[in-house]
């Protein structure tokens, strides 16, 4: 038979931290009045109005930080990036030391920037790609995105917060990995050439900025694609595969265009124009602007897609 009487007073949803206008109290007849053709018009149901856009972004950023920082995979990727740079720097440091021992004139403080930039290009930027892909696609893969969007119907705020947190993490990864690289390299070549501290600081900040922009770019790509394999594949192509193929081309315009791809434009920027291999015919702000362009374009696509597509 019907178990209505099975209900007891054992459970009671608390009303912690709530002031007047708590929803539990405001439901009922009052809200029923909202029905009708004009029901779509905003109206204050409770005592509190909607949060301001800035406050909403701030809260969502806090939530996103908890979401990303509570995943082991986030920290694993950060650790891999730093460890990867340390190993790369050790290898390059040993090579550089060998060169210097053969010919002491080869000792050059510019090696610090050149070699850490190569570390970013070959290793760290892919860690950032994975970091952004995890942040942007993970919730789509396991459907927990519904829980996130439920309380944040303005989906653009979710994307902005996610992008912001990913970018800050990526910036930290860029700066820290540069410092790790410089430190390890110094361990090998310090007796022969000193570290130019201002130059190292610029290198760290440049790498941080570019990694942050990559995070913006790939958080956008991941949000648009909603697929981790798709995002990582596209990331590898855009950062490495496509520019290499384009540079193989005998058509000069295509060859030159390769330097506007984010991977090459980025390394040209954070290496200060001397990464040790051919990148681009262009110098100056065009490189960082190219990366910004990619990031903005990806965000526009992601934002549009997230807003119009069902989850």
């Amino acid at each position: 038979m019907r178990g209505r009487d099975g209900m007891s007073g054992t459970r009671r949803v608390g009303r912690a931290g709530r002031g007047n206008g708590a929803p539990g109290e405001e439901t009922g007849g009052a809200v029923a009045r909202g029905r009708g053709p004009g029901a779509g018009a905003p109206r204050s149901v409770g005592g509190e109005g909607p949060p301001r856009a800035g406050a909403e972004l701030l809260r969502e950023t806090g939530a996103e930080w908890v979401r990303q920082s509570s995943l082991r995979s986030t920290w694993a990727v950060v650790a891999v990036a730093l460890a990867g740079m340390a190993v790369f720097a050790a290898l390059m440091g040993y090579t550089e030391l060998t060169r210097i021992l053969e010919n002491p004139d080869e000792a050059d403080s510019a090696a610090f920037m050149r070699l850490t930039s190569q570390g970013h290009y070959y290793l760290v930027q892919f860690a950032v790609l994975v970091l952004a892909a995890l942040a942007s696609t993970g919730e789509f893969a396991n459907h927990s995105v519904t829980s996130t969007l439920l309380w944040r119907p303005r989906r653009g705020v979710v994307l902005a917060a996610r992008t912001l947190v990913s970018a800050v993490l990526a910036f930290a990864v860029g700066v820290l990995s540069t410092l790790v690289g410089v430190t390890v390299l110094a361990g090998f070549v310090a007796p022969y050439t000193g570290v130019d501290v201002p130059e190292a600081a610029v290198a760290a900040l440049s790498a941080g900025l570019c990694m942050a922009l990559f995070a913006v770019l790939f958080t956008g790509v991941g949000t648009a694609l909603r697929s981790m394999p798709g995002t990582i594949t596209l990331g590898f192509l855009v950062l490495l595969g496509l520019p290499m193929v384009m540079q193989l081309s005998q058509v000069q315009a295509i060859n030159d265009a390769a330097s506007l791809m984010p991977g090459l434009a980025g390394v040209e920027f954070y290496a200060g124009g001397d990464v040790g291999f051919y990148t681009a015919p262009y110098d100056g702000p065009v490189n960082i602007l190219a990366v910004v362009g990619w990031a903005v374009a990806a965000q526009i696509v992601a934002r549009t897609e997230l807003r119009v597509r069902d989850v």
Binding site: R18, P23, V31, G34, A39, V45, G46, W151, P153
Partner: peptide, 18 residues
């Protein structure tokens, strides 16, 4: 239309509390 408390979901002031 599908309304919660008389409004389209996106227009709820504080969906988390409602």
């Amino acid at each position: 239309e599908a309304l919660v408390n008389g409004r389209v979901y996106e227009r709820l002031a504080r969906p988390s509390r409602e």
